[in-house]
Amino acid sequence: MSTKPMRSYAISDLPWTDVAAHLKHDRRLIVPVGACDQSGPHLPVGAGTCVAEALARDLSLEFGVLRAPTFHYGVNLPGEEAYAGTAALRAKTLHRALNELLAVWASQGFCEFIAITANAHVPHAEAIATLRAMDARVRVVEALSVDLGALLEGSTRQEHAGEALTSLLLHLRPDAVLMDRVQEPTVDPRKVGKFSIGRLRRIPPATRGILGDAALASAEKGRLIYEHILQKIRLKVFIAPPPDEDDE
């Protein structure tokens, strides 16, 4: 006799008994990790969190995998504390907090964690990439590190709240995007080019928190970008995941 799909795979929506029952046949857990960081005057604070949550929700439903509540804080770019509403953790604090959560879930029987984030800032990404859990596999997906060059019109170098993220939000949360606030880039591209990917010293104040050309964004472009990222994660993590090093 076939069983009906669960009404929700978000553990925050389920009684503990349903979580325990699901663990008997699938011991994976998707863990979306956000960040409370500014994304220019046209996107909500923590726009990357919206992307991580959407990916986690869609993959959870598609593959029938339980999903943890979103961890809403991460490691922000230097100087972002000057932007109202932002809040950040130190890399070691983020790493420790997530490790403690994974340890509890692993003790309950979860044996594979898929952490999904959309924040390419290197200290943030490294804090998640080095997560470990006893007797469990940890896979980490940094959504914005996927090569999007074929889908973007502007520069594919380091951007923040630019064409890619703005397009994603126009697709996922169009009601939250204020395109009338987007201005033409005011900073010399050569100056922006000095920043190595993920290692920005500080976003120049003249940019109003944006690196890249958000004016090039569109909802259709966002749909294509989102589907491209989703397919990359499907193939890498859920359909044909690589073996653990110990298995090679």
Results as ranks from 00 to 15, higher is better:
residue 38 Q to V: 12
residue 220 E to F: 08
residue 225 I to W: 09
residue 174 P to T: 06
residue 19 V to G: 02
residue 68 A to V: 03
residue 71 F to D: 00
residue 217 A to H: 05
residue 48 G to R: 04
residue 116 I to H: 06
residue 69 P to E: 00
residue 146 V to Y: 11
residue 13 D to P: 07
residue 235 L to Y: 00
residue 66 L to D: 01
residue 77 L to P: 01
residue 121 H to M: 02
residue 31 V to D: 01
residue 163 E to H: 06
residue 201 R to E: 09
residue 132 R to F: 10
residue 169 L to F: 07
residue 182 V to C: 15
residue 222 G to F: 08
residue 45 V to H: 03
residue 198 G to A: 03
residue 166 T to F: 11
residue 163 E to W: 00
residue 224 L to N: 10
residue 122 V to A: 09
residue 95 H to I: 04
residue 73 Y to D: 00
residue 195 F to W: 08
residue 172 L to C: 06
residue 41 P to M: 04
residue 20 A to G: 01
residue 143 A to M: 11
residue 124 H to K: 03
residue 209 G to V: 13
residue 158 Q to S: 07
residue 42 H to S: 05
residue 39 S to A: 13
residue 72 H to L: 12
residue 120 A to Q: 09
residue 34 G to N: 07
residue 185 P to L: 05
residue 79 G to M: 09
residue 196 S to C: 04
residue 187 V to W: 00
residue 221 K to G: 09
residue 219 A to E: 06
residue 107 S to C: 04
residue 29 L to T: 00
residue 241 P to R: 02
residue 33 V to T: 11
residue 178 L to P: 00
residue 229 I to L: 15
residue 203 I to Q: 06
residue 198 G to T: 05
residue 193 G to R: 12
residue 167 S to Y: 09
residue 57 R to A: 15
residue 209 G to D: 03
residue 246 D to W: 11
residue 90 R to L: 14
residue 83 Y to R: 10
residue 31 V to K: 00
residue 11 I to R: 03
residue 112 E to Q: 14
residue 63 F to K: 01
residue 105 W to C: 09
residue 19 V to I: 15
residue 55 L to G: 02
residue 117 T to V: 01
residue 192 V to H: 10
residue 94 L to Q: 05
residue 149 G to L: 05
residue 2 S to Q: 10
